[in-house]
Design a protein around this nucleic acid. Structure first.
Length: 732
DNA sequence: AGCACGCCGACT
DNA sequence: GTCGGCGTGCTC
């Protein structure tokens, strides 16, 4: 009788459990990739068969209740990817599977589902007449759909509409019944936009990648903003479509890139599937199945889309590969960019990492000849390069965050009917809230952080744990009423800006004001219609948008990234400056970038501004080499949170001792710490960390799993929560 | 992660 | 007397 090895989604280092097969299971159901319902402790749960064994060391096996699938749900390559990821990231296999499958799958959902019809919904003539009607409250869903459809002649498919309206199908049916909308089969490519002519550099990329289409071919596509990376992607994808195979496109945040999605839809309406986290579960399940079975041809999605199975993979694209959003920052801490490269190797296909500001890791890989390097130097069209100007804030009047020079330039832009983009990296109204009488400051009771004052909702909020409290009327310490917000946030900046430019139409863009896809889309439409004069926002602004009428970009304070304990802070700062600058002067109008700083002499700024990102990257890489930091070594970080700091440090000291006793530990592996985390108290726990460094990746690869299983056994009864971060992005 | 078992404090 | 706090241990 065979024995099933089942991965159970529990946080144990070895989450594999053996079971006897269910009583009524057929031979073909006893295969890796089939879900089983099993008894587990006092409860029952759904697990995944990962192997069939002939013998188990465990004396008393239970019998599985039933198989949930008749044929394997998970194709073999995906199972292999799970196994590798579990090993590489030291994360329990059962949880890797549960975290990356559509959520319904491990809840035991059936996979025999009616797929949504593969059609694009369009307005009919009749529908167009009603598109601007006002609808009663109970028919607001009509209004939303009609409004969406009236702006897009080729129509939208159901999964795209689901981004704006949850579960659109009943509403679609109702509108179809009235004859206001009609389904258009996707196979009619009448409205497909024609490809744009490629310049020499773009052609070179397309030809070379095509010539290596049948093998693992990793490449870095280094192209400044507007150099036409997207056009290269589109033409490669069109070639993939012709070959009848599939492609996966990863983008950092889909909410923030509706324009790019729209462009893909216009050019590749055939079997395009859009995936992201706000999608309803059922839609995600459909997309997963459609990709696995080869019906979906091009899958565009965020980080988690890297785990979607592909029946006939031909190409993977990772756009804006430098973006930190590709690294998951909690629970299963994988890098979608690195997983994508692994997948391409496994499948034997090309993978394109695209960016205007490539990560130092990828640049290093091109230097090592591991990745091929393509450069797209020219801006498409006649757009001119922006000019940079550093403003020394030490020489400016202190009372305003906007230097006279910045103000003068804003004024000029407003006169000329050009748009301004201002960048500031602090949400909220004011980062501290203080009593002028006694000096009391509102702190988060759960973290080592001040509460941030939000004026519009009149709340104090912690940006680290989302703790919220009402604004106190008098000081809790001295009862005085002189409580005041101190410092600057985007909310307050917007207020000050409005006072300076009373007639300007100002829009704030940050996660407080624009949390959803729909709102972002609306705002972008307004911006393009020039209904906005000044855009003020956080990082969100820097990501991939095209603002053709923006001619002035202002960095309100560039100093945060220049002096940080995190070794990647300067890299991020440089990427941010270049990306934000890339938003300016895209058409005939030249752009200008004003950078306000208290450290105008900083070598990073000089190098970046005078010689460009490439030169900056060179010097940054030299610094990393000298300091033996990534990409010149491999890191892992053991983080721990405990009741007290002493307990946290003590746990790490024990862990360090355990490590040093292991057979695979040697002098090539260095353990640095333990040290208290940069923010010690977070969410009522005290944090410390231990850094693991090695020049050789495979040494760490062998050592880490051994270490973790030893830790699991020894430290099982410690009431601490710990996690290992392989290839950590920041050491916070 | 869940869940049970177990041993100490303030309740009807 | 017991209800329930969370520390500890286990899950094939």
């Amino acid at each position: 009788m065979p024995i099933l090895q089942v991965a159970i989604p529990v946080p144990l280092f070895n989450p594999l459990f053996d079971y006897h097969p269910p009583l009524h299971a057929s031979e073909t159901q006893l295969q890796a990739g089939i879900r089983v319902r099993v008894p587990f402790g006092t409860q029952e749960c759904v697990g995944m068969i990962v192997a069939i064994k002939t013998h188990s060391d465990y004396p008393e096996l239970k019998t599985a209740y039933e198989c949930l699938d008749t044929v394997p749900l998970i194709p073999k390559p995906l199972l292999e990817m799970y196994a590798w990821a579990s090993q590489y990231y030291c994360y329990p296999l059962g949880q890797v599977i549960a975290a990356t499958l559509p959520p319904k799958m491990m809840a035991g959902a059936s996979t025999h589902i009616e797929l949504p019809p593969d059609v694009l919904w369009c307005l009919t003539e009749e529908g167009r007449k009603h598109a601007n009607n006002t609808f009663p409250a109970h028919q607001q869903r009509f209004a939303i759909l009609l409004d969406l459809l009236k702006n897009i002649p080729i129509g939208y498919d159901e999964s795209t509409l689901a981004l704006a309206l949850s579960n659109p199908r009943p509403t679609l049916r109702a509108l179809q019944k009235r004859g206001w909308i009609a389904p258009l089969p996707k196979q009619s490519p009448s409205e497909i936009h024609p490809p744009l002519p490629l310049n020499h550099a773009q052609q070179h990329v397309v030809h070379t990648v095509c010539a290596h289409a049948q093998q693992f071919y990793p490449c870095l596509l280094d192209g400044v903003t507007g150099s036409g990376k997207t056009e290269v992607y589109l033409q490669l994808l069109q070639i993939v479509l012709h070959s009848g195979r599939q492609a996966l496109v990863l983008v950092p945040e889909i909410n923030l890139t509706p324009q790019m999605v729209a462009r893909f839809q216009q050019r590749l309406p055939l079997a395009l599937v859009v995936l992201h986290s706000q999608l309803p579960d059922t839609t995600r399940l459909h997309a997963w199945l459609a990709a696995r079975d080869g019906q979906a041809t091009v899958i565009i999605g965020t980080r988690s889309a890297v785990w979607i199975p592909l029946a006939k993979p031909a190409l993977i694209i990772v756009d804006e590969e430098h973006d930190p959003a590709y690294k998951q920052q909690d629970s299963f801490r994988y890098s979608a960019r690195d997983v994508a490269v692994w997948r391409a190797r496994q499948a034997g296909i090309p993978v394109i990492l695209g960016s205007a500001t490539p990560s130092l890791d990828s640049l290093y890989n091109t230097k090592q000849q591991r990745y091929h390097y393509f450069h797209l130097p020219e801006r498409a069209g006649n757009a001119l390069h922006p000019s940079y100007r550093v403003i020394d804030m030490r020489q400016q009047p202190r009372h305003s965050p906007f230097s006279p020079e910045l103000q003068k330039n804003i004024q000029y832009c407003l006169q000329e009917k050009q748009q301004v983009l201002l960048f500031y990296n602090r949400r909220g109204y004011a980062p501290t809230f203080m009593c002028y009488s006694c000096g009391w400051i509102a702190d988060c009771p759960r973290c080592d952080a001040h509460l941030v004052y939000h004026d519009n909702v009149r709340e104090l909020r912690c940006h680290h744990c989302n703790y919220v409290q009402n604004v106190p009327i008098h000081c809790p310490q001295c009862q005085s009423h002189s409580l005041h917000p101190i410092g600057q946030g985007t909310e307050k900046l917007a207020e000050q800006l409005q006072q300076l430019f009373p007639h300007a139409r100002i829009a704030r863009i940050d996660s407080d004001t624009t949390p959803s896809y729909q709102e972002m889309n609306d705002l972008l439409t307004k911006i393009h219609a020039q209904e906005i004069d000044i855009l003020l926002g956080t990082q969100m602004l820097a990501k991939g948008h095209h603002f053709p009428a923006v001619t002035l970009v202002g960095i309100i304070n560039a100093d945060a990234g220049l002096f940080s304990i995190d070794f990647r802070a300067t890299e991020r700062m440089a990427q941010l400056l270049i990306q934000v600058a890339g938003r300016a002067g895209r058409e005939a109008l030249p752009g200008m970038v004003l950078i306000q700083t208290y450290h105008p002499e900083h070598p990073l700024l000089h190098c970046l501004i005078q010689q460009g990102y490439g030169a900056f990257a060179e010097s940054a890489l030299t610094e990393r080499l000298n300091a033996q930091l990534p990409p010149y070594c491999r890191l892992a970080l053991l983080r721990v949170g405990a009741k007290t700091l002493e307990l946290a440090i003590e746990f790490l000291n024990q862990a360090k001792y355990t490590a040093e006793q292991l057979p695979d530990f040697n002098s090539q592996i260095r353990l640095l710490g333990p040290v208290p985390a940069p923010m010690i108290k977070r969410k009522n726990r005290y944090h410390a960390q231990l850094l693991i460094q090695s020049s050789q990746r495979n040494l760490l690869q062998r050592f880490l799993p051994q270490w973790l299983s030893a830790l699991q056994q020894k430290q099982r009864s410690v009431s601490t929560r710990w996690s290992l971060d392989v290839d950590p992005l920041d050491l916070m």
